[in-house]
């Protein structure tokens, strides 16, 4: 049966979390079942307040082979980091 149930990726937003975080994956026949499986597998210790599931097949991922052209050009551009600015104390989440 495993072969016929597609893989879903699970994203969870915790009580104190601001955004959904990828926590793992599971098998399910459809999205509704995936939500319930996610509840049973990933919120057993009261971790979450919101769940997203998405079919793994629907995730478009960057290729490891293209690592350099994708990411290397940004490595030496330190002016893109906000380290040259004073951040006021009351700006949250920086």
């Amino acid at each position: 049966m495993n072969a016929s149930w597609p893989l879903y990726e699970v994203f969870l937003r915790g009580k104190r979390g601001l955004n959904h975080v990828h926590v793992g994956s599971l098998h399910a026949a459809d999205a509704e079942m995936a939500l319930r499986h996610a509840r049973d597998l990933y919120t057993r210790r009261n971790e979450g307040v919101s769940i997203w599931v998405v079919r793994a097949a629907d995730v478009t991922a960057s290729s490891p082979d293209e690592k350099d052209p994708f990411f290397a050009p940004s490595a030496d551009k330190i002016y893109r980091h906000p380290t040259f600015y004073d951040i006021p104390d009351d700006v949250p989440h920086m």
């Binding site: 098998h27 399910a28 319930r36 499986h37 049973d40 057993r44």
Partner: peptide, 12 residues
């Protein structure tokens, strides 16, 4: 049970 996911559900 046939699936690990169902097993956790029933155990819960």
């Amino acid at each position: 049970l046939p699936e690990l996911e169902e097993e956790t559900a029933v155990a819960n």
